[in-house]
């Protein structure tokens, strides 16, 4: 009970009601929506989830990672590999996936933090590890090498092996996104969360008031990597294929960072708002691109939209939106 109270804490009743209604709507959505809209909603939830995971590191603890594809890729490959080679289902496989990503995160974090790399230098280290792994997977037979790893497409619902149609995957990613939201709220409202914010603002001052900086940063990267690995597992079973060129690509890492940056770093609703906006824009521009029949035109519109957002709302859309709606998320 006290846990629930801590979670809801000083959130206004308006926010709680809105969240409740949103959850109910999302729960019944598959019954109301057609195939296309369901697939769009699945994408929104996926980006909201990985965005939330990345936000723990950057938005909360202030450590810029541009290599999160590493954790998603590792997670996906391990769960998919265990399933296709040994028939080990993803619910068991995800433990291995999460553990591997957590260890990878711990290695990257320990090296980066121990050698006090900050800002761009730390970001480049994360990119380097991700790229390094990409080339390694290109040459790893077990994982299918550069030819890719494929799962047999099977739409008969089999929850044990996470096989089935979009509705199954929708509910799984909804549960993950909702869980991550609650987890992040709980973390923010804890001592650890406050310590992260302090580190983000000024690590030296934080350490002087007793914050064990290295340990807190390590916890941030391990939690973030573990959650991202879950997204990778889901992704692998949803799409049924994995290629090193895409799974570990820098583009994949960048994709993970966009929703929280656009939505508002360090806020709980930022990754969700960002995911809605980015997925929405992506869909609109895809249609537009198909109508115009010019290669790259979709991405050009996308680039323009990013440019406009970063120029006029550099702190993200959510803080501004919340202000307009009178729903100010209390800035801790």
């Amino acid at each position: 009970m006290s846990f629930v109270k801590r979670l809801t804490g000083d959130a206004s009743p308006r926010i709680l009601w809105s969240l409740g209604i949103l959850l109910v709507l999302l729960l019944v959505a598959p019954m109301m929506l057609g195939k296309y809209w369901l697939s769009v909603l699945i994408l929104v939830l996926y980006f909201a989830f990985v965005g939330q995971a990345w936000n723990i590191m950057m938005g909360f603890a202030g450590q810029l990672s541009l290599g999160h594809a590493l954790y998603a890729g590792l997670g996906g490959y391990i769960a998919a590999g265990l399933y296709s080679h040994y028939g080990i289902g993803p619910w068991a496989g995800l433990f291995a996936a999460v553990a591997a990503a957590g260890v990878a995160g711990a290695i990257v974090g320990y090296l980066g933090f121990r050698f006090s790399l900050a800002g761009v230098y730390f970001a480049l280290l994360t990119i380097a590890f991700s790229e390094f792994t990409r080339v390694a997977f290109d040459h790893w037979e077990w994982a299918g090498g550069s030819g890719g790893l494929f799962l047999k497409v099977d739409t008969t619902t089999d929850i044990v092996n996470l096989r089935g149609g979009p509705v199954l995957f929708y509910y799984v990613i909804l549960a993950l996104a909702a869980g991550a939201f609650v987890l992040c709220r709980a973390l923010l409202e804890s001592r650890l969360g406050r310590y992260w914010l302090a580190i983000r603002e000024d690590a030296e001052a934080a350490q002087a008031v007793g914050v064990p900086v290295l340990r807190c940063k390590m916890i941030a990267i391990v939690i973030s990597a573990a959650l991202t690995a879950l997204a990778g597992v889901w992704n692998a079973f949803y799409y049924n294929n994995l290629f090193p060129e895409t799974a570990f690509a820098m583009g994949r890492s960048i994709e993970i960072t966009l929703a929280p940056i656009i939505g508002g770093l360090g806020t709980l609703f930022g990754p969700i708002v960002g995911a809605v906006v980015l997925t929405g824009l992506g869909e609109i521009f895809t249609d537009l691109g198909e109508a115009l029949r010019i290669p790259g035109i979709k991405q050009i519109f996308y680039g323009l939209a990013l440019l406009v957002i970063v120029m006029y709302r550099p702190a993200g859309l959510w803080p501004w939106l919340a202000d307009k709606l009178g729903l100010k998320e209390r800035q801790p």
């Binding site: 790259g296 035109i297 996308y302 680039g303 323009l304 990013l306 440019l307 970063v310």
Partner: peptide, 8 residues
């Protein structure tokens, strides 16, 4: 954003 615009 600039990179996306240039390459596309």
């Amino acid at each position: 954003a600039v990179a996306i615009l240039l390459v596309n």
